[in-house]
Structures are given as structure tokens and as C-alpha cells.
Design a protein around this nucleic acid. Structure first.
Lengths: 377, 377
DNA sequence: AATTTGGTTGCACACGTGTTCAGTGAGACC
DNA sequence: GGTCTCACTGAACACGTGTGCAACCAAATT
């Protein structure tokens, strides 16, 4: 009508992307200032309801979506958080992240995810990038670094929440599972079943959660007046393969343990494989207890007795604490959540005759040579 | 010296956050304009090396980090991509995301992660939020929606890559596993072992990857002149529980199948449990094949024969295609990647005497009553 | 009728960075 | 010595949105 549209010349090769419509375009179409558009779209009471409605209609018709980037610059809030994890492939981590993300999206936050693969250098790098992107907060899950943060956290003007971090820091808030109580309960369960030769396969030596779980183990032993045997304690790395290797070593110790408490379910999964490879049964020859209650725990053979961590819930809690901190409210420095012992079928009373060796242990050349059949009634 | 610092009055309750230093602050300290600072920090050849060095030093000393938000607004590039997944708790998805993230970070991109829990409404919502945030590109992994995208994708000015999407779209690029060839190879493997009564537990009926894998299954059967039995085909939902339920039904079919090809490893995991609950053995009574080669596949009992998808690699490829598209280059519309049959111990020749019933099947009241011992040499 | 009030609106600036363009000064060349 | 060139720098604007403040108008009040 008013202006001729010049013949649009598309640059060859480039896709025909219509220029992104901005708030000013809408303002022009609605014959108002961009301020009014801004107010109308944000439901401000300062604009006439009729014009507001008209503006909203025009905006919708033109598929206008306000740029979160520009808004962030203006408001200095990004509605964005950063989550740094050791590895998203770790099922424990994945569930926690899921909880964080659910809670975040419910509050209109988006989450940046970054793996650091337990590499301190990369961990610092991603935290840097989060800071560059002006995230409103950061959650660090199961970091093996932690200590490094101390110096950074001081300078950081962003609230941080650590979840099951190996090295809790006084500069940050934390969500923590009650390692001590939970593992003591797990080991007490084994003792109640009649076990006294109980081994422990831990995480890497020196990590916070490992030493806490180890303390719970020791405490349960002490309480039952069971002598502690140093050679019943081995260290893995929280993954299945290391659990398998540790279990193999454990099977050579004499007198042989009749039960094994594992740092986590993945370790137990590896241990289970080593036990089976020796032709032994769970729980008939060895009782097995894990920690985490991963989804796969109840699909193991037999279903694994373990300590449940409310992983999804813990992720939500971390986000909730973070939201409080972002809002400037104060929150509890360390939230400790209780674990729950889930008794399944990998634990049973020890065999009467298993004095110091496994009765049914046989040297098997090939794992293929095993088959399940029933023998116990 | 020049100005007295007024006694700093911290607002009570608020943390003592030093005001964020901006490029102008650095400019003031270095006695240059902010333009020069900008150029110096971006290693522009337009600034004198000495002043550049001086500026960089001052910036570093003051812990200055340029705001990615402001930069994004100025350059209209965010160096950010969005990844939407059904559920990050799915191990397959987790590995893919890990690959995406690794490749992204290597190119200085950050990734937004969003679960949609297979809820179309939420899926649209997160894609919206990605658009609002002006991500440079989007990867959609294993979406069960897909079809809905058609209308959105048309309007979207953002490149999108779909990975193993159930409903490929002409509007987007895709990374796809060779479902047909891989499943045909898996079933052919069973046939080579001597099986002819082979069942299939699929994903939800109608999904793209399910029908492709089913086609491969049928093709292998046809090629070997094995009659197709409709009652050997059941549908789950790609998760363990559904696999268990489907397998239970399958165990009641007569003549009973001697081998089962599962849509994925999780389904196989559930099927394994159902088989064990009936007191049957794998592979002695039933051979089992999965798909995906999850990390847990080799820790199953017995280790699972399955089709490996290069999940991490596929994630990287998706990111690479996306980077090309972002750069304005064109990329192959559909990249198909080959699966690889990994033969482990869950497959073996069928028993000679298993004519139409399981010889060793026993009614077991409790799964606890099973123990492994070796019987076959 | 003059003044006040209250509801709407637009102007102008801010947010922090990138980038074009017009200088500015020093050295080189004629 | 004058001019040209080149290296470098700063002013000004752009990016798209939010917001304080002033202005405007109509209705209500004095």
C-alpha cells in the first residue's frame, strides 16, 4: 500500500530466512512505541487492556518471540543455570540431572549441561564458560575435584550448589546423602542375617563419600563386636570394571568373606560378574549389597539389595536451594537426605558350612559353561 | 589518590558481591576506549601489540570475562545449541548426549539440555524456549513426536538435526542407524545357529525405528524360508518392564520360540528377567539378542549378544552436521550409520529336544530358589 | 472554569559488546 | 618541506529489550 516491496533478491545458496521480527517491528505494525509492546507482552497493568490485546494478537500473528538474549542483557538475569557433571553416562548422574531439569523448567529456567569427565582442567573450563554466559547459578554433581573450587568460589559471584560432592566446601551449599547412616544400616542388615566376614569395595581412596560410607561400615562392625580386617577392604573407582577387578582379588582372600558391601550399584554389578565367573552364587555363596538403587538394580540377577538414594528428588532439591539463593533468600548450608535400605534378593544368611572356603567353588575355564538350575529348596 | 572512596555500606543481608567489571571498566583502567579493549581481547591485528598486551594483563588482573550475553546480542550468534531428548535417564540417550556435548565443547559451543518425557506438549514448549534463547541449532534425539515438528520446522529459522528420530522429516537433517541391515544381520545370526522359531519384541507399534527393525527381522526370516508367525511378534515400549511383560506372554505361546530378538537392550533386560523367573536359562533354553550395546550389556548374565550403535560417535556426527549447517554450508540430508553385531554369550544353538516345549521349565514359586552351578561342559 | 487526578503512552537511556568509519599522528617518499 | 601512506585509535552506532520519567489527555474534583 504505502511502500513498494522491492523485488526480493535472495542471496544464492543461503536459505530464505525471513529477517527475524523484533519488538520494533511489532511496534510499527501496532502503531505504538516499542515500550508499549514490551509492557503489553509482559502483561504490565500500565497499558490499556484493549491495545494490549491488539498488540498481543499482532505479535502472535507474526510469530514474534522476544529475544531472551536481549532481555538478559537488560535485566541482568538469564533464567539459566549451569550443571556440571563428571559424566552424564553415569546412571546416577543422569537421574539427578533429570530432577534438576524438571524443577528448572517448572520455574522457567533452562539448563546448560557440561561433562567434565573428571578432568579438573576441563571442569574449570566449563565453570568459566558458565560464568561467561552469566548463568544465574551452578549445580555441581558428584564432582571428584571440588577442592579446586575453593579459590574459584571465593571470586565467583554466582550461587553454587554441590550435590554429593567429594569435597564439600564452606563456600557453597550442598545436598548430601547420609552416607554414614545408610551404609551402617546396610552392613547392619548383613550382620543381622548372620554374616561376620563382610568386605567392602570402595570408591577411590580419599574421596569424601567413600570415607563416609567406609565409616558406616566400620561402625556397624564395631557395634557388633566384629573384628575389622584390613584385607577385606579394597578400592575401585565407582565403575563396574573396577568392581569386577576388586572382587576377583577379594575372592582370593582367606578366610573368604561371605558378604560384600559395595560403594555403589555399578561396583556391585562388576562384583557380581566376578563372582559368577568363579562359579559362585549370589546370595548362596556371597551376599551382595550396593548403593544408589539404580534402575538396573532390580533387573540384576538376583535383584540387588541396595541403599536407595532419592536421586531425582535430590536433583529437585538442589535446584530449589539454588532458586532460593538466586532470589537472595538464604538457605540451609548443608541439606542431608536419608538413604533407604531396599532389601531384595542378593542378601541371605551365610551358608552354615562356609567356614573359610566356598563349598561350591569350582575352577571353570569358560563362563559359557554355566547354566542355571535349581538346587536349594 | 584522586577520589576518596566513600565508606562502603553493604546492604545488610545481601552478599558482598563486587559489581561486575565490564569492558568499560577495563578501558578506563587502561586509558583507552572500550573499542580498543574489545579488539585487544579478541586478538585483532588492528591494535598495537604493546597496548594489546597491556590491556590483556589489566583484564586478567581484574578477572574480567566478557559477557557472552552482550556478545550474542551484538553478533547475533550465541554459540549455543539446544538438545531435546525424551529422557536423559535412558542410557542410550545419555551416551548420545555425551557425544554431542564433547563435540560441542570442542568448538566452543555450550549445550542446553531439555527432557520432554515423550510429552508432545512439553516438547514443543522446550523447542520454543530454545528459539527464544536464540540457539544456533537444535538436536532432537530419539523423539517419539517428530511428526508435530513438520509445521514448526517450516517456520523455524534454526537448523535442526534429528537423531534416530521415529518420524524423519523432510525439513530436517538426520543421523540414522541402519535399522534394517543391522536387525537382519542379528536375526540371520540366530538362524545360522539353527534357530527357526524366532520371536520379536518391538517398540511401540508404528514408530519408525521399530518398523524398520521389524522389516529386517522379516527379511531375514524370508531369506531363510522360515514362515512368519504373527503371534511371535509383540510390542513393548523400549523399557525393561514392558520387555518383561511381553516376554511373559511370549513364554505362553506354543510352539515356544527358541530365540528372541529384542528392539533394544533394555527390552532384552526385562525379557531376561521374565525368562529367569520361569526357571529357564539363556542361552540354553532361549537365545536372546538386543540392540544398542549399552554399557550394561556385557554385565548381563549372560553377557548380551546385541547390535552396537556407535552412540557417542553418532552424537558427535549430529553436532558436526549441525556445525556445517550453522556455517551455512550444506550437509548430507540423511546420514546413515552402520550397526555392528556383537556376539556374546546370550546366543547359542537351540537344544535338540526343544521341539515345542521347554525341557527344563519348572514351576518355581520363588526366584530365590535358583542358584547357578555348572552342568554343561 | 480552573485544577487535580489517574490512566496511557512515548522518549530516552541503560545493559555490554562488536564494528564501521573517520580521524590522528608518525614515518616514508618525492 | 610537503604529501602520501600506514598503523592505530576513538566516536558513534547497532543489537533487542526493560524501565524511569515526563508528557499527554480525559475525567473528576474544587
Amino acid at each position: 500500500m504505502f511502500s513498494e516491496t522491492p523485488p526480493s533478491i535472495k542471496p544464492s545458496g543461503a536459505p530464505s530466512v525471513a529477517k527475524r521480527v523484533s519488538i520494533k517491528d511489532i511496534a510499527r505494525l501496532a502503531c505504538v512505541s516499542h515500550s508499549t509492546v514490551s509492557r503489553a507482552l509482559r502483561e504490565s497493568p500500565l497499558v490499556n487492556p484493549d491495545t494490549a490485546e491488539k498488540i498481543r494478537r499482532i505479535a502472535a500473528d507474526n510469530g514474534f518471540r522476544a529475544s531472551a538474549v536481549a532481555r538478559s542483557l537488560a535485566t541482568s538475569r538469564t533464567n539459566t543455570i549451569g550443571v556440571v557433571v563428571t559424566s552424564i553416562e553415569d546412571p546416577f548422574v543422569a537421574e539427578v540431572v533429570s530432577g534438576i531439569e524438571d524443577e528448572a523448567i517448572a520455574h522457567d529456567y533452562s539448563v546448560f549441561l557440561a561433562n567434565c569427565h573428571a578432568d579438573p582442567q576441563r571442569e574449570m573450563k566449563v565453570v568459566q564458560s558458565f560464568e561467561d554466559r552469566r548463568v544465574d547459578g551452578i549445580v555441581v554433581t558428584a564432582s571428584r575435584v571440588g577442592a579446586l573450587y575453593a579459590s574459584v568460589l571465593e571470586q565467583m559471584h554466582i550461587p553454587i550448589v554441590l550435590l554429593n560432592n567429594q569435597h564439600p566446601s564452606q563456600f557453597a551449599h550442598s545436598i548430601l546423602i547420609e552416607n554414614f547412616e545408610a551404609s551402617r544400616a546396610a552392613v547392619a542388615h548383613l550382620i543381622r542375617l548372620g554374616h561376620s566376614r563382610i568386605a567392602y569395595i570402595g570408591d577411590r581412596f580419599g574421596y569424601g563419600s567413600d570415607s563416609e560410607r567406609f565409616s558406616g561400615y566400620r561402625s556397624a562392625l564395631d557395634e557388633a563386636d566384629i573384628a575389622f580386617r584390613p584385607n577385606y577392604v579394597l578400592h575401585g573407582d565407582g565403575k563396574a570394571e573396577a568392581g569386577r577387578v576388586a572382587m576377583e582379588k577379594l575372592l582370593a582372600v582367606r578366610p573368604a568373606p561371605t558378604a560384600v558391601f559395595c560403594y555403589n550399584d555399578m561396583t556391585a554389578l562388576g562384583a557380581r560378574q566376578a563372582i559368577r565367573a568363579r562359579g559362585l552364587g549370589v546370595p548362596d555363596d556371597i551376599s551382595l549389597v550396593g548403593f544408589d538403587d539404580l534402575a538396573l538394580a532390580c533387573y540384576m540377577d538376583p535383584p540387588l539389595t541396595t541403599v536407595r538414594q532419592p536421586k531425582h528428588r535430590m536433583g529437585q532439591m538442589a535446584m530449589q536451594v539454588l532458586l532460593k539463593l538466586i532470589a537472595g533468600e538464604d538457605a540451609e548450608q548443608n541439606v542431608r537426605v536419608a538413604g533407604e535400605l531396599i532389601v531384595r534378593e542378593s542378601t541371605a544368611p551365610p551358608k552354615e558350612n562356609s567356614e573359610c572356603n566356598y563349598s561350591s567353588a569350582r575352577k571353570t575355564r569358560s563362563r559359557k559353561s554355566m547354566v542355571s538350575s535349581s538346587s536349594r529348596s
